[in-house]
């Protein structure tokens, strides 16, 4: 078994028009910038993107929007230090937005990965974001039904991966990456180093390889935050 692929272009090759794509990261932390930019180079259209945010500056998801790849974003917080790409597309009506409370977003993703089609949560009860959703009372408290959130692809970023797909993450760059890996039909990971099986002690594996389909090495990944501070624009 060897899940590694040689190039970023090869890694994102299966992603076509109309796909739903989960993208890991929280702001720039854990964002698979190189995979996103490879996807922009490929240029599929009409994508639904699932991320906590909706892009920042002119790189990463913001660049996907500017390059016309995205028709819908599902996120919890479409604001950032420089949200112009999202704001302009949203105001122009070319980009649909679904706002989901952050914990509900995470749990919908986790539920999809665990094969749970729906669950109940207290979050959003009595608010506009619960409109139209079934409500049930359990032990005297009201809960809102939420459904799983699946994707065709997940683009994620890790620290060390082995050729069987086992992965670790660096610091708080973990965030949505491990749960998105579970919720997509095809999970594509970029890691700083691809190692042989056994290089990661089994106790330290965070994402077991069963959740990962393709892995590409990006030895010196860029940080979105630093790119934005440099004024970078992609492409």
């Amino acid at each position: 078994m060897d899940k590694s692929v040689a190039t970023l272009a090869e890694a994102v090759a299966p992603i076509g028009d109309g796909a739903t794509v989960m993208i890991g990261g929280f702001g720039g932390s854990g964002a698979p910038i190189e995979l996103i930019h490879a996807l922009i180079d490929k240029g599929p259209k009409n994508l639904t993107v699932i991320n906590n945010n909706a892009g920042n500056g002119h790189v990463g998801i913001a660049a996907m929007i500017e390059q016309g790849l995205v028709s819908k974003i599902i996120c919890s917080f479409p604001r950032s230090s420089d949200p112009i790409a999202f704001n302009e597309a949203f105001k122009a009506g070319t980009l649909e937005l679904e706002v989901v409370p952050q914990g509900t977003l995470a749990e919908r993703i986790r539920a999809a990965g665990a094969g749970i089609p729906a669950f109940y949560t207290a979050t959003s009860f009595g608010t506009d974001l619960a409109e139209g959703k079934p409500v049930e009372t359990f032990d005297g408290k009201s809960y809102v039904q939420e459904r799983w959130l699946k994707a065709d692809f997940a683009l994620i970023k890790g620290e060390i991966g082995d050729t069987m797909g086992n992965m670790t993450y660096r610091m708080a760059a973990r965030n949505f990456n491990p749960i998105m890996a579970m919720a997509a039909d095809c999970t594509i990971a970029q890691v700083t180093r691809i190692a042989e099986p056994g290089a990661i002690p089994p106790e330290q594996v965070v994402t077991p390889g069963i959740f990962v389909d393709r892995m590409v090495e990006v030895a010196e990944p860029r940080q979105e935050e630093i790119l934005i501070r440099e004024g970078a624009v992609y492409p």
Binding site: S76, P83, Q102, S124, L129
Partner: peptide, 19 residues
């Protein structure tokens, strides 16, 4: 949300306050 239009953004607030 002020409810006056604009771009809605909720983050984790609804989770925190209920639980």
């Amino acid at each position: 949300s002020t409810g006056k239009g604009g771009i809605p953004a909720v983050g984790g607030a609804m989770d925190l306050v209920q639980s």
